[in-house]
Design a protein around this nucleic acid. Structure first.
Lengths: 196, 196
DNA sequence: GTCTATATGGCGATAGAC
DNA sequence: GTCTATCGCCATATAGAC
């Protein structure tokens, strides 16, 4: 049984850590968001590091989970690939700070990350299998397809403040439209490349 | 005339800021790397913020410069696009921390970034023109092409510790080979998509 | 479980001697 | 120009009352 206070802390910490990262986040800001004080936070989670690990696992699990959803329907491989692209874009556009957060933590402390990662139940080979059939036909390493999709999805969100300023007259509406268009652009690129 | 001490500080600061970012960097670490003390650092650069701005402009200028190089040769548009991809990959593989650094600072303080950015002599429209002719033919916004290239180039470097661990048995050599292959993969994707 | 008050340490920045 | 010593602040973390 999880207490309501612990939940409030967890939700506040999720918001702050995602926006600020492990180093930028402040315990004070988390307690303010949760409506409690610092001592109480340490009562539930002994240290900042400890709290962060809990949050990271939770966030990464959702990412893994979203990937998994694309594989359990009774549809063709092509439809699964296109569904995966939709899933990623929806997830990232709804949580625009997550990619930057994950990139930072991936690079900040890889040793700790390794342990946290495999507690999320990640199944690296499952997703690769989706691309194997078509990429083998083209004599391409399926990992290239996976990385390409991730990059094309993440780039416009991670670089948004700059891109929007330089290429969209700082108009958020125009940029949202641009992001919406990307679903089809990325799908078309993958379809053409793999000959789907 | 720039003193040797100032240069040593600048080089040390570049290394530390790129690896740790503005918030993660420590003045003490910079002075250690430079072989001097903190007081001397503040003598040359009045504040951390000040030093950081100088470094950021320097790093970003190199990125802009690399982009510009792809446009001044007497070659076809297709060759310019492929050259741009080569240039980006070479630059990023030689400076693997730079993309993460730029992404972080883009999102950390966009207002200040805006001023710094336009001091680098960036010409946003020049690069877009390279894609306009071919992308119009396909009825595609050229900004999609630009973002796609950036994403495909940056993703495997920014996510390297994770990707290498999960998909390459943590073998750095295998991952380097993978990165080398990406030049052709990305080129092929763009060629097929734009019908070059 | 929840609070106030405080310990402890690290950081950016400065004073002042040489 | 370069150094040692130190200030002042803010962050994580804990002590101890309720």
């Amino acid at each position: 049984m999880v207490s309501s206070t612990e939940e409030k802390i967890f939700e506040a910490a999720r918001r702050v850590f995602i926006q600020k990262g492990m180093e930028g986040a402040r315990m004070q800001e988390i307690t303010n968001e949760a409506g409690i004080n610092k001592a109480l936070l340490h009562y539930y989670f002994r240290s900042k590091e400890n709290l962060f690990h809990a949050i990271f696992k939770d966030i990464f699990s959702k990412f893994i989970q979203k990937t998994r959803e694309s594989f359990h329907a009774e549809i063709s491989d092509k439809e699964k690939i296109l569904g995966l692209i939709d899933n990623y874009i929806d997830l990232i556009h709804a949580n625009p700070y997550v990619p930057q957060f994950i990139i930072n933590e991936i690079n900040r402390d890889p040793e700790v990350l390794k342990d946290l990662l495999f507690e999320t139940g990640i199944e690296p080979q499952v997703i690769l299998r989706l691309f194997t059939k078509h990429s083998q036909k083209m004599n391409i390493d399926p990992r290239h397809i996976f990385v390409s999709i991730l990059g094309m999805v993440i780039a416009p969100v991670a670089a948004r403040p700059l891109m929007q300023m330089v290429y969209f007259n700082n108009d958020p509406e125009a940029y949202n439209k641009f992001l919406e268009e990307r679903k089809n652009i990325i799908k078309q690129m993958i379809i053409k490349f793999l000959g789907l």
